[in-house]
Nucleic acid binder design. Structure first.
Lengths: 222, 222
DNA sequence: GAAATACTGTAATAAATATTACAATCTACT
DNA sequence: AGTAGATTGTAATATTTATTACAGTATTTC
């Protein structure tokens, strides 16, 4: 398959020719996964950098009781778990699962070093990638530790609403998925949403949620 | 003050002469803080890399109700928040506070790039530093999201016990500090410890805790 | 040594969330 | 159209944790 990494964040700012020149310096392998297949288990050693060529992959943290927290969803040309390739234990904390059929390429650790040494833009991109993961994780910690379920849902709504620049947002996810994202149970989330509707802070029509009283809603973000 | 960075993780593997040669290429400033002073507020833009020369600094996340979660304690020669210097929003998620009088040096972003470009060891060290932060944060997420208070305390004990290679460990922290670390209230933690003692899973003598029944204790780590 | 401050144990009550279960609705598939 | 599976709303109960308060002990400070 022809690989075009122009829109991959690792190569942001480079044109196709520059990328191909760089890629010629390193070896990479291509591998395909079927929907539902596990790309790697959490706690496996990360030995390679993965770049998703097509398909969707999501990462989740499992615990022994089977409870999961969904961490991230990765799209085409995303770099998977760059932050755990070079950490001391190099263990990826999440299990990566193919949400759809997916193809990805892998580059060895030493070849990654080679890449970032040979081009400052790639170096900066790589550091930014890892740093963004740290940022994402610390935001997640805030999200998980300070909010009630209502607060989490409100925060989620505000984020969506800000992105869409409208008061009416589409959740796009099932309650089950959302509850996993929030690390709570599904009935608890349903109850919270129901209460917000009763209190007239939001209106819910299927996955369409309208923010009715953003002042009161904001107060839930303690 | 004479700066010796031989034991700083950023310069791990280099000798004093090599470090000094490198440092000659960059500018850095030295600054002192009094005990209790805030080094920087969370959400401030990170513009510089800080290395702690002496003293102790801790980072905590605050929320609007005043609840805090203590994130990390940093010792002499630790690098402060390297992961947020190069992230897209470059906001540090924690407020850094001097736990004791402290002195640190700061290096600008561009000078950091210069450093890591000019020496592969420093490059690898820097990437490892950032990656370790991501690892730390994701471990923290697991810790916060999957454990009950008893579970958190058990996990904490096991980690200490593993480090000390003995069944008897010294907490070294007050209940107040521990509860902040766990993101729970102090009375709730005291109660949990009391119950573990009653159930004879541990014995507590001041800050000296002895694991009595590690089998049962392990079951709490769900 | 006295006073102030920090630390710990405890308890009553309230709030939040989990657990489990069930029924109604919707969707996809054959 | 009919069935299986997913999704949602809801409720009863149990568990966990927060909140608040107070008292006893230990430690620091003057």
């Amino acid at each position: 398959m022809k690989v075009n990494l122009e829109n991959c964040k690792l190569f942001k700012g480079l044109n196709v020719n520059e990328i191909n020149l760089l890629l010629r310096k390193v070896e990479f392998k291509e591998k395909s996964f079927r929907k539902g297949e596990i790309i790697f288990y959490e706690e496996d050693k990360c030995q390679k950098l993965f770049i998703l060529l097509n398909g969707v992959v999501h990462g989740e943290i499992l615990n022994s009781t089977g409870k999961t927290i969904k961490m991230a969803s990765m799209q085409s040309l995303d770099v998977l778990a760059p932050a755990f390739l070079f950490s001391k234990h190099n263990k990826c904390p999440v299990t990566m699962i193919a949400s759809t059929d997916a193809t990805l390429i892998s580059i060895s650790k030493e070849n990654v070093i080679l890449l970032i040494k040979s081009n400052e833009i790639v170096l900066r991109n790589f550091i930014e990638l890892i740093s963004d993961i740290a940022q994402f994780l610390s935001d997640k910690i805030k999200f998980l530790s300070f909010q009630t379920i209502k607060g989490k849902f409100a925060k989620y709504l505000f984020d969506l609403s800000q992105k869409a620049k409208t008061e009416k947002v589409n959740l796009k996810k099932s309650q089950q998925e959302l509850s996993e994202l929030f690390g709570v149970t599904r009935p608890a989330l349903a109850k919270a949403i129901g209460e917000l509707v009763k209190e007239r802070l939001i209106a819910a029509n299927d996955k369409e949620i309208t923010i009715l009283n953003s002042v009161e809603l904001k107060k839930l973000l303690r």
